[in-house]
Design a protein around this nucleic acid. Structure first.
Length: 693
DNA sequence: ACGTTTGATTTGGGG
DNA sequence: TCCCCAAATCAA
């Protein structure tokens, strides 16, 4: 029996810590029985009032979540973050950056708040009062204007929203928790430290004495919280001296709340449709697999590139029959590639390549997007991705589990052979995005920044011809670009010209060579080279911008985005030509992609703040697809919200306090629909009324 | 000797 | 050509 792809069992995900409750109790007991820790469950009313008052007055609150397995956010990471059961709050007035200690300083307090619900049937008056105290402390943490520090603050906010359902997501909007993970990443976005200890070792002046093996847990935690406080000071100082403070304070800090609110939203999925599609695609794959075996004349694992390689090139010897074409090789081992480009070259010589191509399409959709999403749902009827703020060097955010940013835009057509009288074939369209549905009475609304990266290129280069396209907004941008470049009227531009223009723009900006471009366009390398030359000839300032950026990076070792985000490129002066060229391409790409990321994130923050300070608006952010924001909006508010979103996003052309003034207008397209797969463009009158608050 | 785990590799979805 | 994530195979 050979393994059949796609039929493997359920993937394990987001495993809730389900170890026996007594283990979790035993671990939290070591925390709460220590005299240095004040357990909120054992405090009387007076003590609670006293603590709340102190929380308002103390110099700093330093926090960490406590997980059910007894670890905290400061312990080395585990693969799967366990469920949280409590929160430790250090209230401190000391500011001196001395080496951490294992005992509380005078006048400091350490409180343990339980974040698990006691079943209603077991609730007593004291428990109710304890939960009220927890809520008040959390509100203090969220609304305090003085210093609050937490490593991985997003996890704290999400947990707070999850455990205290009486907290509205709007209430996290104003919160400004300092997060050393975020500041550390801003200082060096290339490698954000994997755990707290790494971050500490990297940035603390004096090496911190790592707690001895036998040290008590409570001592470790106290030492950890004091060192966290110190580390935060140190990082804030570094941010200021590197000119990154405004970016941190005005953007990244606010992003923490935006992402926490986005993560805590449930997106409903049509699970039954997903199951039906899975079966349909499974049947189609079985059919294609048989065809592949028949065409190959043997049984082999269709998903295995190595097996496919031996069939294509050792058994059928297809490479010998196309000496005029050059077949791509694998990157590292110089073997014959079985990539899409290679199979397209071979498809006229043998039926097998075509079958493999179709099989891969179907397999991709089924395993990643249909079964993948099903496995994210477990027994639930919804999904919520995890969003990462500090994993991308360019400043973009990323998503996991599922990766919302990679669901296919286009539906897949498959023909289903069925042996039923009267019907021979049936065409079915499969569209993973269509499985995502708004709640009853709500609508999805998407707002898309049109050609942000190209507009930013126009701004950064100040190229007059490129600017002209955006300042006179007549017709399609890429059509105008193609007509300018080819020297023909807009009416004469074919859809192929337009597509070529689009590809060439981005490949030039990203530094693609003629080989690569020829592969993308399907033309000869010479032709691709001529295209590049004529493009750079038409838009001279773009060329100048690229060279200016590279030169500047050589000189100072880093480049900056439009809002001051920084990427240092250590290899920019490497003696190795290949390494150095790569750094040059990364430098140019960073300035554009990073600036686009800045704009999109600022848009998320602005809209989030507008909605959360409004008593009537209820729209929630569902996902961010880099240059597109997806919201779930109450039906009755679609029109109003659409206007608000469009005007807020387009107003980012000028951001006074960050010194952003774009030479080009920003354009936002808004669409809406009753599923993510069927969105239609919305016509919004210019100068929509601004919201009266 | 046999299963599990890990990293490298390849492919392809998104921007 | 830049920046990601997911799935799968394969060798160690």
């Amino acid at each position: 029996m050979w393994a059949r792809p796609g039929s493997n069992g359920l993937k394990i995900c987001h495993e809730e810590a389900n170890e026996p409750q007594n283990q979790s109790k035993a671990l939290t007991a070591t925390l709460t029985s220590d005299p240095r820790v004040k357990d909120s469950g054992k405090m009387n009313q007076d003590e609670k009032m006293q603590m709340l008052e102190m929380a308002g007055k103390t110099g700093a609150l330093v926090l960490t979540l406590v997980y059910r397995d007894g670890t905290t956010q400061l312990d080395p990471e585990q693969k799967l973050t366990p469920a949280a059961c409590g929160l430790l709050v250090l209230m401190t007035n000391s500011l001196h950056l001395s080496t951490p200690e294992d005992s509380l300083r005078p006048n400091d307090s350490l409180i343990y708040l339980k974040l698990e619900h006691t079943p209603a049937w077991a609730q007593q008056h004291t428990l109710q009062s304890q939960e009220l105290f927890t809520r008040d402390m959390l509100l203090q943490v969220l609304s305090r204007s003085q210093l609050v520090v937490c490593y991985k603050a997003k996890d704290l906010l999400r947990t707070a929203l999850q455990y205290r359902r009486d907290l509205s997501w709007k209430q996290v909007a104003g919160c400004r928790i300092q997060d050393p993970q975020v500041s550390g990443w801003l200082l060096d976005p290339a490698k954000s430290s994997s755990c707290y200890q790494d971050l500490l070792n990297k940035h603390s002046k004096r090496p911190h004495t790592t707690p001895a093996l036998g040290t008590k847990k409570v001592s470790q935690v106290i030492s950890g919280l004091y060192s966290l406080h110190c580390l935060n000071m140190e990082l804030c100082f570094k941010l200021q001296s590197q000119g990154l403070w405004d970016l941190y304070s005005d953007m990244e800090l606010n992003m923490i709340s935006v992402l926490a609110a986005m993560e805590s939203h449930r997106i409903h999925v049509d699970k039954e449709a997903l199951r039906r599609t899975s079966d349909l695609l499974g049947a189609k794959m079985k059919q294609l697999e048989q065809e592949a075996h028949r065409a190959a004349g043997q049984i082999f694992l269709v998903t295995s590139n190595t097996q496919l390689r031996t069939v294509l090139f050792e058994k059928l010897c297809l490479h010998e029959r196309c000496e005029n074409k050059k077949l791509p090789k694998t990157i590292n081992k110089r073997q014959q590639s079985t990539s899409e480009a290679a199979l397209l070259q071979l498809q006229d010589l043998h039926p097998l390549p075509k079958i493999i191509l179709e099989y891969r399409q179907v397999h991709k959709i089924k395993s990643t997007f249909v079964d993948g999403i099903l496995s994210c749902m477990m027994s639930k009827n919804y999904v919520s991705s995890t969003w990462y703020q500090t994993s991308v060097v360019t400043g973009r955010i990323s998503a996991k589990h599922p990766n919302f940013q990679a669901l296919p835009r286009q539906p897949l057509q498959i023909t289903k052979k069925q042996y039923i009288e009267g019907k021979e074939e049936e065409v079915v369209t499969v569209h993973p995005r269509a499985m995502f549905i708004p709640q009853e009475g709500w609508t999805f609304l998407a707002a898309d920044f049109c050609q942000v990266e190209l507009r930013l290129l126009a701004h950064l280069s100040s190229d007059p011809e490129l600017l002209r396209i955006f300042i006179n907004p007549q017709g399609d941008v890429f059509t105008m670009l193609a007509s300018q470049w080819k020297g023909v009227s807009e009416g004469e531009v074919t859809s192929e010209d337009r597509e070529h223009a689009k590809r060439i723009v981005y490949s030039v900006v990203y530094g693609a060579g003629r080989e690569r471009l020829s592969g993308i366009l399907g033309v000869s390398a010479e032709q691709a080279s001529r295209f590049q030359d004529s493009f750079l000839q038409s838009y001279r300032e773009v060329q100048a911008f690229i060279q200016r950026t590279i030169q500047q990076c050589h000189k100072q070792g880093y480049v900056l985005s439009i809002m001051g985000r920084r990427r240092t490129l250590p290899n920019i002066n490497s003696p190795d030509w290949g390494i150095r060229m790569q750094a040059e391409r990364q430098a140019v790409n960073f300035v554009i992609q990073g600036s686009a990321a800045d704009l999109c994130k600022m848009a998320m923050i602005r809209i989030f703040n507008l909605v959360s300070s409004s008593s009537s608006l209820s729209a929630r952010l569902v996902a961010q697809l880099h240059d597109e924001l997806l919201y779930e909006v109450e039906d009755s508010q679609v029109e109003q919200f659409a206007g608000l979103v469009k005007s807020t996003m387009e107003s980012l052309q000028h951001i006074d306090h960050l010194g952003v003034h774009l030479n080009v207008p920003l354009k936002v397209a808004v669409s809406c629909g009753k599923s993510w797969g069927s969105m239609s463009e919305l016509d919004i009158p210019p100068m929509s009324p601004s919201p009266c608050l």
